[in-house]
Design a protein around this nucleic acid. Structure first.
Lengths: 119, 119
DNA sequence: ATCGTAGTTTGACATCCGCCGTACTACGAT
DNA sequence: ATCGTAGTACGGCGGATGTCAAACTACGAT
């Protein structure tokens, strides 16, 4: 129904590490930052792609860009452009195959810690 | 010989964070360094206390001291002096109560990554 | 007492990190 | 064509991090 081709501008393709290139240390480092952990938790909670602008983060636009790049380069998320928005998604299945249980236990730990602190 | 000022001993007890003070971000950060991850894996593999000198690490003595301190302050390990040796132990049970499954999944992930790389 | 082993402390150094503002690009809508 | 929104790139800043060597402390053994 849409007459226009779905293919986005090739110049706006983003580099992602292949599953086999994902390194545990980088994943852990990416998750060790509060802002990035928050992003990952929001993505996990939504279960869907989310545009960068949907996140309510306590940092500037340029810092936000930085954190999303770290997450992408670590292999935790995938990013692709949709119009003017940049969509972000957790690479859950790949991560699960690579490091079974890791992401879930981190997410559970984060939830638990928030519980303990918040009340 | 010139009498030197006597430094108070104080080398007996080391400060450890209480279980409730352990922060997920710090634990992840501690695990994100290759040298420290190696230490944690060795401790997990041995299942017992280990003196610092038993680890075969690719860094100097002072850097070793630094890494063990980061691990202790993050809550991952406990340390206590036994004679001239400093004994290190994983705080497995406490970590497990705090963040169930987290340590195990990180250890499994590390083992898996080594398999994949080392063959 | 002296020595060797184990670990610490200090100070330095280069790098990385998180953060910002400003100027910029890309796209859709008007 | 122009404008607004979404995000990027650049350059800089202060603080954290990993690293080392050298000098030091602590303890057990000789």
């Amino acid at each position: 129904m849409t007459p226009r081709a779905q293919t986005p501008n090739a110049a706006r393709e983003l580099e992602h590490p292949a599953a086999r290139e994902i390194r545990l240390e980088e994943v852990l480092h990416a998750l060790a930052d509060p802002v990035r952990l928050r992003i990952v938790r929001a993505l996990a909670a939504s279960g869907e792609e989310m545009a960068c602008s949907l996140f309510d983060l306590p940092v500037s636009k340029s810092t936000t860009t930085h954190h999303f790049r770290v997450l992408r380069e670590s292999g935790l998320i995938s990013q692709n452009y949709r119009g003017t928005a940049k969509m972000n998604a957790l690479r859950r299945d790949e991560l699960e195959r690579l490091f079974p249980g890791l992401l879930d236990s981190v997410l559970a730990a984060a939830a638990r810690q928030e519980e303990r602190r918040g009340g």
